[in-house]
Amino acid sequence: MDGKIDVKELLEFVYSFYKTMREHEVTLVYEGDVTHQITKAFTSLTEANMEAQLEDPSTQKKVFHVMVECLQNISKHAEDINQKDDSIPRGGVGIFILSKAQDSYVVTTGNVLSKDKIPQIVEMLETINRLDKEGLKDLYKQRIKEGRISAKGGAGLGFIDIAKKTGSKLFYQFLSINDEYSFFVFSTMISRTN
């Protein structure tokens, strides 16, 4: 920005952004540092909204669960390519989107990841997606017994928990950014009709 606002450009941007959000039924979108404060603020805001809309309590709990785990995934695992200086990595940055349709909520996250982490994530997500409810329970029990809290404070159980609580398959895609990094998109659906 050079201090002068291009009014036409701004209007077009805001209007198209507004339309896109409406089309995709986005109720909350955020891009930036995902801190503990952000996690708390978004979850309590969403909780209050669902409460006001008399959302089914079980759906409310599931949305809360998924939001917490997804936001913590970003805050613990996301990497960031600083556009001005590649030598300063910043963690915990990503995009978070909550959308609400007639019959479901969808929580979507996007963040930058080192390519060398992809195989491990794919293996984990594919394993989870092959399992049924009982299989997920067993995997959860096995992982919680073996697992340790990582230096970043994660238990490595987030994806399993999301699949277990929502009963939906986990959607994911990687978009290559350059030789070193990819953009990881992760999406979960929470049905409103239990």
Binding site: K61, F64, H65, V68, E69, Q72, I144, K145, G147, R148, I149, G153, G154, A155, L157, G158, I160, D161
Partner: peptide, 12 residues
């Protein structure tokens, strides 16, 4: 009433 997965490990 609620605990996240990181807490679940410490509860264990």
């Amino acid at each position: 009433v609620y605990f996240n997965t990181a807490s679940s490990k410490l509860l264990l």
